[in-house]
Design a protein around this nucleic acid. Structure first.
Lengths: 207, 207
DNA sequence: TGATTTATATACCGGACGGTACTAATATTA
DNA sequence: TAATATTAGTACCGTCCGGTATATAAATCA
């Protein structure tokens, strides 16, 4: 009988940190201060790790950031996939999407921080092509998720619009971008929700 | 007869730089790299000034950034005021607004940089309340300009919508935010223009 | 128990950071 | 021309930056 690997400890001194938790705390540090604004000291303080351990686990600052960035994208993709129901009417599906986005954007101990990509990756995107690529991919992936849902609604006869699904998706994505920015600017949850609802009604021709 | 002050030179050694031009070049440096990402060396290289002159003229890095930020806001306000015609039909006025925004967002030597506020101030807004205030004011001022135009269109009977002028304005502002982000992400001008046009048609119920 | 393996912890590296004292240069004023 | 005023330019300040060498601690394996 083979012993479970997760129980059998590896050979050397055990880690004093939980990798997932450390990554989450590094995410928070970057989210607050941005990539350039978060110092290695901020990151070690946030994770509770010392610098050599941080390097051993995640590589240098840029590599750590890229890891965090990809993890955020995966979280966002999954959150959207869950929220963007194909069962509910289009308007309700969009409402769920925006509600979930507002949840994510207004979380955070030091006040709302918006979208991680918009708050940190956008800034670096001009001078850092790798970050720009991930940032653009993140936007376009959301576009694609939304476009598929709009296409579905059109095919089902749930929505007739003179505007193509792709363009509708980019506008719907734009509403979300705006929620992220307004959250980071400190707008109240009520304003965010009203903006989202107005967007839903426009997009679904419920004006 | 009084001699013009602008001709009469002040007492000491004359400046080797043009203050307006220096400020524009500092703007470019911050726009590319963000506030935290732009070093004082970047700023002196961009402006051609040495550090003591830079300090004498504009104060420390934060003060210089705040000056640049306010100047950008003034430029943006004026650009919107010019573009947001009250004579043209609402849809055409919005088209002018977005066209002008795309012009500003895609300018820049090292590639498109989007909106200065979104690309640089948003990132700092979580940890720097003064920057957050200016960022939020910038968003809300654009909201107000757009809301006034929507209100005008409604009063004139040019637009009937179940959505209030304020909410329409925030959505219209969101489209612009999205153009800024997409520009910084590297999206083509064609995509930006298509997104803007879709936004116009939704906002003006031309779907 | 002793060797080996892995991680932690301390202390340090060269360099870049934001910021400034000091000197030299260039103008006006008397 | 001498005195004064204002700027430019150089050189430097202490600190923090990202990153790493080295030593020590804590586990498994034989």
């Amino acid at each position: 009988m083979v012993q479970k690997k997760s129980v059998r400890r590896p050979r050397g001194r055990p880690r004093a940190y939980d990798p997932d938790q450390a990554l989450a705390q590094a995410t928070a540090a970057f989210w607050d201060a941005g990539y350039s604004g978060a110092s290695l000291e901020d990151l070690t303080a946030a994770t509770g790790m010392n610098k050599p351990s941080l390097y051993g686990a995640f590589g240098n600052k840029h590599a750590l950031y890229m890891t965090v960035l990809e993890q955020y994208r995966a979280m966002g993709r999954e959150a959207m996939r869950e929220a963007l129901s194909y069962e509910l009417p289009l308007a309700d599906a969009l409402r769920r999407v925006y509600a979930r986005a507002i949840e994510i954007y207004t979380a955070g101990g030091r006040g709302a921080r918006g979208c991680f990509l918009i708050g940190t990756a956008a800034t670096e995107s001009v001078l850092d092509p790798k970050i720009r690529r991930v940032f653009a991919d993140g936007l376009h992936e959301l576009d694609a998720q939304l476009e598929a849902r709009f296409t579905h609604a059109m095919e089902r006869g749930e929505l007739q619009s003179g505007i193509g699904a792709g363009d509708l998706a980019r506008v719907a994505c734009g509403i979300m971008n705006s929620l992220a920015l307004r959250a980071r600017a400190g707008d109240s949850r009520r304003v965010l929700e009203a903006t989202a609802e107005a967007g839903v009604r426009l997009l679904c021709s419920l004006g």
